[in-house]
Design a protein around this nucleic acid. Structure first.
Lengths: 175, 175
DNA sequence: CGTTGCATGTAAGGTGTTACATGATTAC
DNA sequence: GTAATCATGTAACACCTTACATGCAACG
């Protein structure tokens, strides 16, 4: 994240991560971020300085990437193997175990999933709108557009499953 | 997995997990499965017996769920909070860092993603075809259909991103 | 006669989380 | 006044992986 050249605190990184990486990767906890920042600095990949508490808020430590860090992350981005995407879809795991649940609960599950996906889609769309202009910000903006479509697809998939349920659950409406 | 009532070995569970849960959840390693089976038995949720090496292959231990185990997994499926889906999309992370890569490499990445998604779609479709008949197998079959659509959507998303790239990368073909 | 599949397990390590601790400022 | 936001960090632990060890049977 520091490779974009900005000077950021651990807190900043967490907020940005939640609003950006969180859509397609996971967002680390505060404790992990602070720990990793120390590791990065020890490795010479980042430098830090204390910012005085000028008018409100307490003192904070901001980090900036070093030349060595830029070289390392660029090499990583170019050469590291790209692992296949990992998905851990709790609601689908529940559906897989459908024989343990009753049909109303299954519908509830899929409905919750539909709402969750739509909420994420709206958030991604809003963040894409608010994306900063400039050459290097084009790619984060692109992934936000990807996220918008991804969550739209998720929402539609949940709806399709709701439509498929009656057959499987044997509870078609009858008059 | 044992809640479907079958008597299965750790090895069986791994194979089944790869071909089924792996599409929407992750598939655990052998070592984790064997460890968990011991924990389940110690907790009284499963019982095991040794199967003699009748004609080929060595002896193996097969597990079956107990009544206590069935009650526990049913309670879990009904009451445990359903966590939102977790995605860790390595290729998108790379795209997010697009300013560190050159456009041809970005295309390569998305192309790989497209191929991966199509491969998974084909596998899910094949497994859905081969799904066992019967009341309780309807839900695993349903999730396989979900997976088929999910990976089709992934493939289409990668294609959309390929189409969106030129603009962002500023390398529109010019004559 | 080497590779693949079946079959199980231990040990070490990596990665990430939650709970807790601290404390100031700002908004309702 | 009390909740939320900014801000950082430690300690304990949960979870899961890889590497390694073992060994038989079937296939080509």
């Amino acid at each position: 994240m520091l490779s974009f050249g900005e000077e950021l605190s651990g807190y900043d990184l967490k907020k940005w991560s939640d609003a950006s990486l969180g859509f397609f990767y996971w967002s680390p906890s505060f404790s992990q971020i602070y720990g990793e920042l120390k590791r990065l600095e020890a490795a010479g990949y980042a430098s830090s300085r204390l910012v005085a508490p000028e008018a409100g808020s307490r003192d904070k430590r901001v980090y900036r990437i070093t030349e060595s860090g830029t070289a390392a992350v660029r090499a990583w981005a170019r050469e590291a193997p790209v692992d296949p995407p990992v998905l851990k879809h709790g609601p689908m795991l529940r559906l897989w175990l459908g024989h343990l649940l009753d049909p109303p609960r299954l519908r509830e599950l899929l409905d919750g999933q539909r709402e969750y996906a739509e909420g994420m889609r709206v958030r991604a769309a809003a963040d894409a709108e608010a994306a900063r202009a400039g050459e290097q910000w084009a790619y984060p903006a692109l992934t936000l557009r990807w996220a918008e479509r991804y969550y739209a697809a998720q929402r539609d998939l949940a709806e399709s499953m709701l439509a498929d349920l009656p057959e499987a659950a044997g509870d078609e409406p009858r008059h």
